[in-house]
Design a protein around this nucleic acid. Structure first.
Lengths: 404, 404
DNA sequence: TATGCTCATGTCAGCGATGTCATTCGGCCA
DNA sequence: TGGCCGAATGACATCGCTGACATGAGCATA
C-alpha cells in the first residue's frame, strides 16, 4: 500500500502504428491548441527562484549579469580546491575523504564533509578518469534499428547486469544504416567507454581490431562479426527453427511453408537452414516451393496469401520472426484451425492467441552479453568465447495440429 | 536485394514469460552442455594474433611480458603528443587539424592526417571536456523500471532526436527503487552529463534544485516532479481516459468498469480521474462499485473476474494500461462480443484482436523530451514548460458495441 | 636520548586536450 | 630598404583529480 511498485502504471504501447482501424482525433489533450505536436501550458509560476540562487555563494555580485550562462554560473560548480579552501585543508585531503582511500583524522574528516555538503561538491569523474589513461565506467551499446523493441529487451538485461559490476550503459544506434556503424562506434570510443557491445550491421568489423588489441572488451550480439575475433552471444537460431519443423513433421506435416526475411541476414540465414535441415531429415529436399523470404521484410502478408493459395497449399507454416507471425495472424485471422503454425520469437499475447512459438529468454540474452563484458575485463587475454542463447518450443495449440 | 534493411530480422519477443502452456525444453541449442544458462563453444582459433599486434609500434620489446595489461598495452592509445611527434609538429597543431578550428597549411595538415591515421589516433573527449569546467555531450536518462519496454520506446525517441543535436544518451534505471533515484542521478551528474531526463520515482525531487540552478537542464517525463519546477512532458492521461469513457457512454453504457493500478501513482490517478469525470458527466457519480485498482498491479485477471461476476455486471470495461488490457483478454478470451472495452495504451496485435484503445505516439513522446533538453540548452532561463503528449481513440470494434 | 616507525597531511606532477598569447616568416607597400 | 601585417605554428598554462613522494609530529623501543 505505502510502497507501491512505481512502474506498474507505465504503459507499454506497441511499436506498430495504430493500424487498420478508424482513428478519431477527438480526444486530443486539453481542448485548445491545434498544435501538431503537443500542448504547452505556461506552467504556473510555482515555488521557484529565477536562477541565481545557490546557497552560500563564496563571492559573487549577484546583481549584474542577467544572463548567467550555465558554464559560468555565479559560484559555479564546486571543485576539490573549493572544498579544500573552505575546510582549511589541502585538495589531496579532500580527495582522501571523498574517495575514502587513506586514513584521515576524524576531526579533519568531519570538517571536510561539512564543506562538501555546504558546497554540494560532486567529484568530477571526467577528471578522475583522465588520469593514467584510465577509462570511464560506461559500456557502450550499439543497437541496430532503434525502433525494434528486441534491442531494448536486450539492453534491459544488459543494463541490469552491468549495474552489478558498477558500470553504466551508453545507448546509441546505427539507425539501420550500415555505414553509420563505424561512426557511431567511434563516438563511443572517443568517450573512452570501458567496453563495447555491438549488434554488427556493417559488412565488416575488422576496423575494431585495433581497439580490441588495445584491450577494450568487445562483444558482438545477435549477429556474428566479420573479420573480427571477439566474444559473441548468439541465439540458437538454427536449432530452434529445426526443432519447430521437427515437431511439425512428427505430426505428419510435409508441406510446410517458411515465411521470413531475406537470407542474406545472419539470423534469417540460420533459421532458414534449420528449417531445411529438419525437412531434409524426413526426405523433403526441394523446399524452395515453400519458402517465402520476401524482399524487404515488410510484405509478409502478401507472401503468406501467396503461399497459402498455391496449388498444393501447405498444411503448416513456420513464421521465422515475430513480425511474420503477426502478419500470419493478420492474413488468416485468429481462428484458422485447419492450419498448423509455429513462430520464431515469442510475443505478447501469443498465449491468448494459442500461438506456438520458439521462445528464449531475452533478459538472459542481455545478461550473457554483460557477463561477457565483465569476464573479459577481468581476464583480457582469455580466448574469445561464443555463447549461444538456448531456445525452446512453447506449445500453445497452433503448432500441435496434425495435417487436415 | 543487395542492401537489405539490416534490422528486419531482429526478433521482437514479448516481455511476459511464456505462460499458460506446456514447455518443451526439447530443442536446446547444440546438443551437449546441460549448462543452465548458455552453450559455450571454444571458438575455433580464427585469424587473430595473440595480443600485441598494433602496427608500427614506436619502441617496444614485443618479446617479453606475456600478459600485456589493457591499460599498459605496448604502444598504448595514441595521444595528441604521439601524433605530433610522428608528424613533426606541435600538439597544438594536431589539435587544430583534428578539431578543424584554425587554418593549417595544407602540407602540414596532410602530414598530421597521415600520422593520425597511422597511429589510429582518436581524441579523448574526457580530456577535451575537462577544460574550462565544460561538460560532456551526453544526456542522462533515468528510467524507472528497466523491465518496462515503455521506457525504451521513450528512450529510443529521445536518442534519435538528441542525436541530431550531437548528443548521446546515457541510460540508467532506478530499478523500481525510489531510494535509488538520488544515487543514480548523482552518478550521472558525476559524469557531468549535459542534461538530465528523469522519470521521477522518489517522493521528492527537490534535491535536484541545486543542480538546476547551476544550469543543468532537467526534464521530467511521464510523471511530474515534486518540489522542483522544471520542464515536464506528460501524457494526456486524464483526457484520454475521459474520451474513452465518453465514447462508451455515448453508446448508452452506464455500468463501466475500471481496471487499473493503484491510484497513488500519478498516471493511474489521472486516468482514474478522467474515468470518473466522464461518468459524472452522464450522471453516474458513485463509481467505486466499478473500480478495481488492485494492490500490486499484478492481479488484474482476478479483479476482472470479480467485477464481471458481481450482481449488476458492467456492460463495458476501461482497462487503464496495456497490462490490464492483456489481462482482460486472458480473462474473457478474444471473442467476448457482448462486452465493450477500451484500453489505455496501444499494444501489438490490438488491431488483429479488434481491441479499441487510447493510443499515442511514443516516439513523439521521446522526441518532445529531447526537444525540451535542446531548447533549454539554448535558452537556460526560459520559464519551465509543461508539454502534454496528445492521445487519441483508435476504434477497432471492441469499444463500439452498445450495451447488450 | 637517539633511532625508527606510524599516522596525518601536504606538495607536485601529470592525465590529454585546448585557449591564450607569443613567435617566426614571407611578403607587400611606402 | 624598413616596417608592418597576416598566416602558420609553437610554448605554456590549465581544467579537476589523484598517484608518488615528502614532511612533520608523536611515540615506542633500544
Amino acid at each position: 500500500m505505502v510502497t507501491p511498485s512505481p512502474a506498474d502504471d507505465a504503459p507499454r504501447p506497441s511499436s506498430s502504428a495504430p493500424s487498420s482501424a478508424a482513428t478519431t482525433p477527438a480526444a486530443s489533450s486539453a481542448s485548445t491548441s491545434p498544435a501538431p505536436s503537443a500542448t504547452t501550458t505556461p506552467a504556473a509560476p510555482a515555488s521557484n527562484t529565477p536562477v541565481a540562487s545557490a546557497a552560500t555563494a563564496p563571492a559573487a555580485s549577484a546583481t549584474t549579469a542577467p544572463v548567467a550562462s550555465a558554464a559560468t554560473a555565479p559560484p559555479g560548480r564546486a571543485t576539490l580546491a573549493d572544498v579544500a579552501r573552505l575546510a582549511g585543508v589541502s585538495a589531496k585531503t579532500v580527495s582522501r575523504v571523498v574517495t575514502d582511500t587513506d586514513t584521515v583524522a576524524p576531526s579533519t574528516r568531519a570538517r571536510v564533509e561539512a564543506a562538501v555538503a555546504e558546497l554540494r561538491f560532486r567529484p568530477n569523474f571526467l577528471a578522475r578518469d583522465l588520469r593514467h589513461g584510465a577509462v570511464s565506467k560506461t559500456v557502450g551499446f550499439v543497437m541496430g534499428d532503434i525502433t525494434n523493441p528486441f534491442y531494448f529487451e536486450l539492453g534491459a538485461g544488459m543494463e541490469r547486469e552491468l549495474h552489478r559490476g558498477g558500470l553504466t550503459m551508453v545507448l546509441t544506434a546505427t539507425e539501420d544504416d550500415a555505414s553509420a556503424e563505424e561512426r557511431v562506434v567511434g563516438s563511443l570510443l572517443a568517450q573512452r567507454v570501458r567496453a563495447l557491445v555491438v549488434v554488427p550491421i556493417a559488412a565488416d568489423q575488422s576496423y575494431l581490431e585495433h581497439e580490441r588489441s588495445l584491450g577494450t572488451p568487445i562483444v558482438c550480439v545477435d549477429r556474428p562479426p566479420v573479420g573480427l575475433d571477439v566474444d559473441t552471444v548468439l541465439l540458437a537460431n538454427r536449432a530452434g527453427a529445426a526443432a519447430a519443423v521437427d515437431s511439425l513433421t512428427a505430426l505428419g506435416h510435409r508441406r510446410i511453408a517458411y515465411i521470413g526475411s531475406p537470407g542474406d541476414l545472419y539470423t534469417n540465414r540460420e533459421r532458414l537452414a534449420g528449417y531445411r535441415e529438419a525437412l531434409a531429415r524426413v526426405g523433403v529436399h526441394d523446399t524452395a516451393h515453400w519458402e517465402r523470404t520476401d524482399g524487404d521484410g515488410r510484405d509478409f502478408e502478401a507472401a503468406i496469401h501467396d503461399v497459402l493459395h498455391q496449388a498444393d497449399a501447405p498444411t503448416a507454416v513456420l513464421t521465422a520472426n515475430n513480425r511474420a507471425s503477426a502478419a500470419l495472424l493478420r492474413a488468416v485471422g485468429t481462428d484458422r484451425g485447419d492450419l498448423a503454425y509455429i513462430g520464431f520469437d515469442d510475443f505478447d499475447l501469443a498465449d491468448v492467441l494459442g500461438f506456438s512459438v520458439v521462445a528464449y529468454d531475452m533478459r538472459e540474452f542481455g545478461r550473457l552479453a554483460a557477463q561477457c563484458v565483465l569476464d573479459r575485463l577481468e581476464s583480457p587475454d582469455a580466448p574469445p568465447r561464443a555463447l549461444e542463447v538456448p531456445v525452446h518450443l512453447v506449445h500453445r495449440g497452433s503448432g500441435e495440429r496434425p495435417p487436415a
